[in-house]
Write a protein that binds this DNA or RNA. Structure first.
Lengths: 226, 226
DNA sequence: GTCTATAACGGGATAGAC
DNA sequence: GTCTATCCCGTTATAGAC
């Protein structure tokens, strides 16, 4: 256990380097160098760089998504068919990833930025990963939110959930913590979860916005200028 | 004007390729190839790849940020010292970038994803860009929000503004539109701005959240398991 | 200001010994 | 399962002709 297996060491190294320098910015030589293994080992264990990325991603996201669904299951079971509170739904969505990533980070496995960064990769890289891991999550949480907010149109729920994903990837990418540290704050897990949940729940409860009348004029003016 | 200058063509090509494949994933060969110019031209006009990125970024973000500040100036001038509405502040922050990027996108210049992607680049690349372009924006809009929401602690304003940045970069990166299109929706500029502004304003008005009592137990259990 | 040619190096991937 | 050695190509950057 003091010296993990070759494959694990490569996953750890790739996770760290992907987070720090991006996927394209990380060479397999850097991965094997950091893991202290030979360059050829990565091809033996994973085949290609892309397959390595898929394993790095699935190792962390898989368990987190199981925890999310288990938490939502438990909430719905104890609610006995009644709609859930929006805050409870978002806590089930956000808390597992933040708690688990923080716990792993304390052991040197900082995979939050890796996950956050994957969302910024080219679509051909991201889409297979997201389709595989998040289809069920999106389906279940959209349904729960629809029951919790019956007055919100289905399209609006999907649209706002996408904004929540934006908040979460930003937090995962570490940008939120950077901003906090610039103001001398280092929040606890619980405080950060509470803030993000409160922000997103309030955002979801906002009335459906109608475009302002003035917006069209501005847009037209811009089009003319360009 | 039918065939722009070499330098402009390279900026256009780099903008498109950075958006599609990321910074590290875009080679100077690809840029000059797409621009139809010689490989050496990029070094003549920009010197290094990093300088090219800085020019690509500044060309779009500079004017947008000027428009944001001008819009905030106009709001504050007409308010005569009284606090602004939160929605008006966020509209001044969000509308210029969405409107201007959409107008440019209709002419084939799709730089939204380029800007959104820059936020996911390694810190040593991003931080100089953000420091140069967003210090004034953050200062001015934080001050306006603090006057609009006098009961919100200063740290909370900074923290929530960082979440708004997360929403905006997600929208700019194009993820929000992808999610919408999966549900058959293609919103207008004005509708998207109204939705994002409404979401963020409601999130900002949320009561300051206190961590739930149960959160500590969960965190401790996770730490034990790991 | 734009070109060709090339330097100097790093990239992913693979073959085959051990 | 891990190693060495190597292939072949792409990378940024530069030198110097035009």
């Amino acid at each position: 256990m003091a010296s993990p297996k070759t494959k694990t060491r490569m996953l750890d190294a790739a996770e760290r380097l992907f987070a720090a320098h991006g996927i394209a910015g990380t060479s397999l030589r850097a991965v094997t160098g950091e893991a202290g293994v030979n360059l050829a080992a990565v091809h033996y264990h994973f085949g290609t760089k892309d397959a390595l990325l898929r394993e790095v991603f699935a190792r962390r996201v898989g368990p987190v998504n199981e925890a999310r669904l288990a938490r939502l299951d438990a909430l719905e079971a104890s609610a006995g068919g009644r709609p859930l509170a929006v805050e409870a739904i978002f806590t089930a969505l956000l808390a597992p990833v933040i708690e688990q990533s923080r716990a792993d980070a304390q052991q040197g496995h900082d995979w939050r930025r890796m996950v956050g960064r994957v969302y910024a990769e080219p679509v051909e890289v991201v889409e297979p990963l997201l389709r595989q891991h998040f289809a069920e999550i999106e389906r279940r949480f959209t349904a729960a939110l629809a029951r919790a907010l019956p007055d919100l149109p289905a399209g609006e729920i999907a649209a706002r959930l996408s904004l929540v994903v934006g908040v979460l990837t930003h937090v995962l990418a570490g940008q939120h913590e950077i901003a906090l540290r610039q103001h001398g704050e280092v929040p606890s897990d619980a405080a950060m979860i509470a803030r993000v949940v409160g922000f997103c729940a309030a955002g979801f409860r906002a009335p459906v916005a109608a475009p302002r009348a003035g917006a069209r004029r501005v847009q037209t003016a811009l089009r003319r200028r360009a």
